[in-house]
Structure formats: C-alpha cells, structure tokens
Design a protein around this nucleic acid. Structure first.
Lengths: 148, 148
DNA sequence: TATTGTTATACTCTATAACTATA
DNA sequence: TATAGTTATAGAGTATAACAATA
C-alpha cells in the first residue's frame, strides 16, 4: 500500500491519459459485444448520429465524428452496403440526406443494448451515483455548451 | 432548452460512448501539443510505463498497452531509434530490459508538461473539485484493484 | 469562390502467422 | 512445452490531394 505523491510530471493526473486507459478497459468488451454484427463502436456512433439528426449530410456526419469528408464517404459506403443507412436526395443537388433504414433502426437498438450489457460488469466497481456523476462530467467535457 | 428523457437505447448513457467523445475533444489539442516531438500520446504513455517500471520487457509493455508483442516491437524500435529508450540485457537471454535514456527522461518530462498545458483550457468547464472527482472515478474504472 | 461528393494514394496502428532462440 | 523476440504480411481507419458538380 503505497502513498501516491502527485507530481507535475505524473501521467496519472492527466485527464486525457485516464480517459484513454478507461476506454481501453471497456473497448475489448465492446468489440466482443458487437462481434455478431462485425461492426465497430465508432460505426454505432455514426448510426446513432444519423438517427438523432435524420437527413444530415456526409460532411456534417464527418465533422461530428472528427473525421474528414473522404473518411466519412468510406464509412457511409460501408453502412449503405450493409443496408443500415440510405442516401436520399438532399437539400440541394450536391448533398445527400442520410437516413437509417428500417433494418438500421432495429439493428441499432440491439447494438446499443449489447453495448450497455457489455459494460455493466466493468462498471460494477462504481456505485449508481458514481456512474451518474461520471456520465455527467464526461458529457460536460465534450458538450460544454449543452444546457441539459 | 430540451428536457432529456433517458432511454434504454440512448447512446448518451453509455460510459464507453461518453469516454470516446470526451477523448476526441482532448486528442486534437494533445497532438498539437506534441507536434514539436512528432510523437503520439500513446507513445508518451509507453515512455511513462518504462519510467514507472524500469527494466520491464517488451511483452509486458505490450500487455500494459493492450497491444501484442509484434506491435510492441515496432513501438520500441521507434522509441529506440529516437534515443528515448534503450534495450539492455534482461533477466535472461531471451528478454530485453527496457530503460529510458537520459534524453528520454528529459523529453518525457517536457512532453507531459505540454500535455498538461494543452488540456487545461478544455477542462475549464469543470471546477477543481469536479476535475479531481473525474480523475478518481476514471482511475477506479481502469485500475479497480489499486488501493491508493 | 466555397462547398459536397468522389476517387486515388499513402500513412499509422494493430493483428496474424510463422520462425528462432531460450526457458 | 511455453515464452520472448523478430519478421513479413494484411487489414482498419484516417489523411491529403486532386477533380467534378453545384451553391
């Protein structure tokens, strides 16, 4: 049982480091949970964004995911090939409006359920109140302007 | 101002999702902060692990970073080429003991300082107490057996 | 001029598989 | 037999650069 002495060059007090370590802890379980769909957690995020903002275009999707247009293009191609997303005529002649298919809606719900079940045992180390605090603080970190 | 209604198929209440979104928020600043060194945050983590556990071998480093032996090999090759890490004779004839060089020690301290400065403005949305709570909860998530 | 989609190409990170040497 | 290092190869994810069509 050692007494930790926080220091200025200590990695443990960097939020970015702790985020990455915690994410590693959950990511293996997440990939396993999604194995039946052969899809990555990041693609589930993309599907959820399309569901939350039906009709958004590829460039907007890319910006929300912090990837560029070309990468968003490849992502949408894959999701469309699998029948989860469709490109409809957009606001104007050069953009596409992205929408989930019926199949995409159904699969997304199941994927999210699997993800939730996969992280439950790893969160057992925290109380319900602590889990809620963690979610709230993380949310404020990436959505500082959100009011809810 | 919308009232959020938490639902079972809501991505916002997945810890893994919130971790990834918060990490994205910090990662651009982190890469910029490390640009003078042309090194990624993950490599800084590797250096910090070697500093914390001098003499550990490549396989152990890989396990700590959740990457396999072959990937750890390439990582150590790069860090050695840059003169930050050295391979010394290990416990036995088939393993190497990894150590930071003097230059590695110095650069690591500066890298961590840069990372700390880079995340400060992004953490301004949280109070000091909230930042400490966040660090503590994240730490417990990935180090559930740690006693300090 | 600026934006959207598209394509081609390249880079980073990681994995798998196979091999050698050592334990 | 099992483990540590090594090498070659492949896949995922992303970026840059260039172009066409449209705003």
């Amino acid at each position: 049982m050692t007494q930790s002495v926080p220091s200025d060059d200590d990695l443990d007090t960097l939020v970015g480091y702790q985020l990455q370590m915690a994410r590693l802890q959950l990511s293996e379980a997440a990939h396993t949970a999604l194995a039946p769909y052969g899809i990555s957690p990041a693609k589930v995020t993309a599907l959820a964004l399309v569901r939350a903002q039906p009709g958004l275009d590829q460039s907007a999707l890319g910006r929300a995911l912090s990837i560029n247009r070309a990468s968003a293009m490849k992502l949408v191609n894959l999701l469309e090939e699998r029948g989860l997303v469709e490109r409809r005529p957009g606001r104007n002649l050069r953009s596409h409006a992205l929408h989930l298919t019926i199949e995409g809606e159904a699969q997304l719900r199941d994927m999210i359920g699997r993800l939730r079940a996969s992280e439950a045992p790893l969160l057992a180390t925290l109380s319900k109140a602590e889990r809620e605090t963690l979610l709230r603080l993380l949310h404020r970190l990436h959505a500082p302007l959100s009011s809810d």
